[in-house]
């Protein structure tokens, strides 16, 4: 096939990959593009006088939310969505990706801008740590970043026994530094085992809680899931300060207290 005929075939064939149909108050454009799980990306058009709005009606962020148990978008995800929108000249409004097609503007280019933005936003799924769910540790990292609290993550520390322990966060606000361990599980069966692990960790690291630069130990319970018993909290309250992820402001107060 010669070069001109390749172009000609593309010119003739590409348009047919976009299928338009009436869909209530919108025109639906079924695109050939797919979300990461294979679901088809649909766009919707609505005319308002001589301006046409092209949007995904919020389906991209809805798709993204359905892949995770996180109740809200993280700061990092919001920043990435804003970056995608900036690149493609798309507006993010009420969870929808939108672009206006003004008189004289080619509709095809606006449609491609919106669908490219939809693709890129849905690809944020690949950035989730497990490629499936964003961990609570990721959410905590986003929160600390948002509150401008400097931290080191997954720090390895040597215990008095000689064993190496990994602490989720070493947070260093101006007043006093803290080590934070996150207790997170979806299973009641695993909850006690995790609490006991963190207890052993704080006990073995307790030399770090002494001296002029004594570190505060914080046990942060992911209590967005009802798996913890009162005994789990009691187990850790003598050796550490208890914080609950359902009360993030209290966590900040704990970390920034002198």
């Amino acid at each position: 096939m010669s070069a001109p005929s390749i172009c000609e075939e593309l010119r003739q064939g590409l348009g047919a990959l976009f299928v338009c149909s009436e869909h209530g108050q919108y025109q639906r454009i079924r695109t050939p593009y797919l979300y990461p799980d294979g679901d088809v990306i649909d766009l919707f058009c609505k005319a308002d006088n001589d301006v046409l709005t092209i949007t995904d009606l919020g389906e991209t962020t809805r798709w993204l939310r359905m892949q995770t148990i996180s109740p809200k978008r993280s700061v990092r995800q919001r920043a990435l969505i804003e970056d995608v929108c900036l690149t493609h000249g798309v507006e993010f409004y009420k969870g929808m990706l939108l672009a206006r097609c003004r008189p004289g503007e080619p509709l095809a280019s606006v449609v491609l801008r919106v669908v490219q933005a939809a693709l890129r936003v849905s690809d944020l799924w690949f950035t989730f740590r497990t490629r499936a769910v964003e961990s609570v540790a990721d959410e905590v990292a986003d929160f600390l970043t948002e509150r401008q609290l400097p931290f080191d993550r997954d720090e390895k520390l040597a215990g008095r026994s000689g064993r190496a322990w990994t602490v989720d966060f070493h947070v260093r606000p101006p007043s006093r530094s803290s080590l934070v361990c996150i207790l997170s599980t979806g299973s009641r069966y695993a909850a006690r085992r995790i609490a006991e692990h963190v207890l052993a960790l704080w006990y073995d690291l307790n030399h770090l809680a002494a001296g002029p630069e004594a570190l505060q130990f914080v046990s942060l319970f992911d209590d967005t899931m009802d798996v913890w018993s009162p005994e789990d909290f009691r187990l850790l309250e003598d050796l550490s300060t208890i914080a609950r992820w359902s009360q993030p402001e209290t966590l900040i107060e704990t970390l920034t207290a002198a």
């Binding site: 009606l57 919020g58 359905m66 892949q67 499936a132 599980t185």
Partner: peptide
Amino acid sequence: PLFVRGSYNPLIPALSYALILKTAG
């Protein structure tokens, strides 16, 4: 560690229900 998530977009309408295993997605 299983969760069910439901989501409805009445504008289309589009509806999804998903079972999510916390450790696998």
